[in-house]
Design a protein around this nucleic acid. Sequence first.
DNA 1: GTCCCTGCAAAAGTTTTGCATTGCG
DNA 2: CGCAATGCAAAACTTTTGCAGGGAC
Lengths: 134, 134
Amino acid sequence: MTSPRPFRLTPQRAAVLRAVHDASDHPTARDIFARVKPGLPGIGFATVYRTLNLLVEHGEVRELRVGEDPVGRYDGDTGRHDHVRCAGCGAVADVTVPLPDTVQGDAAAASGFRVDGYELVFVGRCPGCAGERL
Amino acid sequence: MTSPRPFRLTPQRAAVLRAVHDASDHPTARDIFARVKPGLPGIGFATVYRTLNLLVEHGEVRELRVGEDPVGRYDGDTGRHDHVRCAGCGAVADVTVPLPDTVQGDAAAASGFRVDGYELVFVGRCPGCAGERL
DNA sequence: GTCCCTGCAAAAGTTTTGCATTGCG
DNA sequence: CGCAATGCAAAACTTTTGCAGGGAC
């Protein structure tokens, strides 16, 4: 079992948790660092990263990597939902598109894997970028 | 316009292209470097990366990043298909699960984005890892 | 001759780790 | 006291870029 170790809610951890939950733009670790820094000037990168990993382990926060961008993004909404990424500016938005119940079974049958879930990311253009080019 | 520049098929490029097309395991740039090195001992990392980017631009190869792993993987199959990732060992396999035609329209309606496509990655356990734990 | 390609080395960027210090319990 | 958490600095990694040399056309 992955029994999460006990958890101490320090000011740093509370600040990071709040920053992720308050954000709606899927911030990167760097973004979160920048947003938390003003309230805790002493905080360092390492604490932010360690905290984010801890929060992910505890299921308080969801980590996602989308598209060709190699940087991790964090989502305070841990409920089931999907994402859309703008190919123009890289923005990531939430969206929920229910798939038929059969897809996981289909995937399992086709691959031989046991399938527990999926990640679905749509690719397109946000309203701002849609009119520009292409 | 993204008019692909002319293209010279050097031995290095041919080797990288062949390595990706022959692979079925979605190798990383590092994997490809290791596989190509024996046949071209002089080759360097930079050439592999530059070549992979070139091949992606020309649509000869597909780049994908899946899961919490920040490293890029490459797929010689450029046709429409999906992937399954093993949460145990990190293996990535191909799978094709057609989704209803309505999903892209649903996503567009729900997000306000123009939606051109999607990436679908199932998460589960490969046959080898399924029996082990959890 | 010109231009593209390569290889090496260094740079850039993200994430992790080591270690001494601090401070709660 | 004992142990976990922090902050700083350095390390680990992946990927990109600068530059000089060399080959193709």
